[in-house]
Amino acid sequence: MRLIAVSVVSIALMTADHKGRHLESLRGVLATIVYPLQYSVDLPIQVGTWLAETVTSRSELLGENYRLRRENLRIHSRLEKYAELEAENRRLRSLLDSSIKVGDRVLIAELLSVDMDPFARRIVLNKGTRHGVYSGQSLIDSNGVMGQVVQAGPFSSNALLITDPSHALPVQVHRSGYRAVAVGTGPQNLLELLHIPNNADLRVGDLLVTSGLGRRFPSGYPVGHIISVERDRGRPFASVKVEPTARLERNREVLLVWPAEGGEASDGVNPGGMIP
């Protein structure tokens, strides 16, 4: 019977897709076929944005210009300070004889904003292997870490956000240096820290940054702020909730990061990125 044959094929495909990456090439080919679809869905939004930009009034533009110029100035001053710190850091690191990871290369990608399964947190980007995107590449925005690329097709790529329930991210508390693993919670749009002992030095408001220990994300990018710490003596671990700093649901532009040399992820192993 045809249904049985088709079911067997589907289940075989699902197993192959779930267990390993045997179907990457097949998926790549199919992704190229559906790319026009995604593009055409995205087109009205792009036209809308373009129209809105075109008909913005002069005073608004002037105001924005003024605001941006001020912001630019502020950032510049901070950057100068940062350059100085970077130089100092480099000096100290060379004293410690360790590798330097500064000056990551970035590329701006746009969301094709296809997010269909309400329980997963996945996005589709308009950059693919043609632009040098690779599977496992990390994704940031101006405020913090967003996620990582899980499938790179020729012209588009799928990325997993850090709030996806299958995503885990090695982090570090900025204040105390305490290390932890943050996993996504799906629909709640929060992160949760795993296996935190009740006496751990964590406070509400603490900033978490990537620790770089998974060898997949570059270290030192902000991840989120702790919004609640519940210590229950009856349970072995505290429940810690983290709100991401990146504007995960609101961005249209994201940054793809190529780590500076020494920070690349080794491909075969399963680093801190995904829980299988």
Binding site: L3, V9, L30, V34
Partner: peptide
């Protein structure tokens, strides 16, 4: 069923779900 299967595979690729998930359901 065959059309359903092909549609399902396309939908899987489009939505980034497991390849075969929608294919099975639609079939």
């Amino acid at each position: 069923i065959m059309v359903a299967f092909i549609l399902g595979i396309l939908l899987d690729v489009l939505s980034g779900t497991l390849l075969g998930q929608n294919a099975l359901a639609l079939s």
